[in-house]
């Protein structure tokens, strides 16, 4: 795998494609190659695109990529689709909507199956983004699986998250539920040519004005616009960002430039307000996750024989409760697991 590193850094597309497969399949040596690529990351701006199935994510990603190309920037797209939990297979159909990008050497599209991971991304997505970043693309657009209300892993991977809504998908109580709307840095109301788009925009705006931390002062100033406010009381010096709502029609390009402007404004905002902190938060989460995984694996390896199966049986037989089982297991292995 390490032999892919130099060609990949030189921009060879085949090397990039093969590296992506290697990390997805966890082929021997992929970790060393990733480690060698890591110093070359941190240059691309990572944009996440999420939203319910059928809101037009793929079409909008395609339109955004075209608009970025018109501005002279190179774009890598990572499109995630779900793996069947029954067969392990997947149909990855996002390229259907991305025909317009064919033949452009400044665009690289890769489809990725979730392979059992929940949360809207695949396990390998984070590493795949890094590899695309190291390959020198200016923007990496990550399209999540069609997301409902809690597939929000994307915020831990992207710097700017776009949530796409479309008319007719739910009442305004949907909009104030916790979850996916809270992660938006930019809201796009796609299919804005359909009737009901005004209602969708109004519902989203009401939700933002009700619930968004930036809204309290913002309401006194300008409506729904990017704004700076006084440093808040919790010690944060960064001005707050009010997610703009952009109307788009992905199929004819309407509003796409405005959406791109909104992304770039958010980028400027993050760069001035503290990308360092955002990135540190991402890294912290990733380290915790990887630690948790590694420790669990070691712990299970340290458990003698069929201790675990035996414990499961005892819990099911009501001889011990699940919490008691865990503390007994911890007592059995204790510190050796970490050692």
């Amino acid at each position: 795998m390490i032999d892919l590193v130099q060609p990949l850094l030189n921009g060879e597309r085949r090397a990039l494609a093969r590296m992506l497969t290697a990390l997805e399949n966890e082929r021997p040596g992929y970790e060393t190659a990733l480690a060698a690529l890591y110093p070359h990351t941190g240059r691309a701006w990572i944009v996440g695109i999420t939203g319910a199935p059928g809101t037009g994510k793929s079409s909008l990603v395609s339109a955004l990529a075209k608009a970025y190309r018109a501005r002279g920037q190179t774009v890598a797209i990572l499109a995630v689709d779900p793996t069947s939990p029954f067969t392990g297979g997947a149909i990855l159909g996002d390229r259907i909507r991305m025909r317009d990008l064919a033949g452009d050497a400044g665009v690289f599209i890769r489809s990725m199956a979730t392979r059992g991971s929940l949360g809207g991304l695949a396990r390998a997505t984070r590493d795949a983004i890094r590899v695309m970043d190291a390959a020198g693309f200016d923007r990496v657009l990550v399209e999540t699986v069609g997301a409902g209300q809690s597939e929000i892993d994307i915020v831990r991977a992207a710097y700017t998250t776009i949530v796409i809504e479309a008319p007719g998908l739910g009442d305004d109580v949907q909009a104030i539920k916790a979850g996916i709307l809270e992660i938006a840095d930019v809201l796009a109301v796609n299919k804005a040519d359909l009737s009901g788009a005004d209602n969708t925009v109004r519902g989203l705006r009401a939700m933002l004005e009700l619930g968004h931390p930036a809204s309290r002062t913002e309401l006194l100033q300008h409506h729904g616009q990017l704004m700076s406010v006084e440093p808040s009381a919790n010690g944060h010096n960064a001005p707050l960002w009010m997610p703009p709502i952009v109307r788009t029609v992905a199929t004819n390009g309407q509003g796409v430039d405005e959406l791109l402007d909104a992304i770039e404004q958010h980028r400027e905002h993050v760069l001035s307000a503290g990308l360092v902190e955002l990135e540190r938060a991402h890294i912290e989460i990733e380290i915790y996750e990887r630690l948790r995984e590694t420790l669990l694996l070691r712990f299970l390896q340290a458990l003698p024989g069929d201790t675990l199966a035996d414990m499961l049986r005892r819990v099911q037989a009501r001889e011990i409760d699940p919490r008691g089982a865990v503390s007994e297991l911890m007592g059995l292995v204790g510190n050796q697991a970490i050692g």
Binding site: S84, T87, G89, A90, I91, L92, I96, R99, S111
Partner: peptide
């Protein structure tokens, strides 16, 4: 059919 056989199918249209 290929999906049901556990393969990842990229469908381009």
């Amino acid at each position: 059919a290929l999906r049901d056989a556990g393969m990842e199918v990229i469908y381009t249209g």
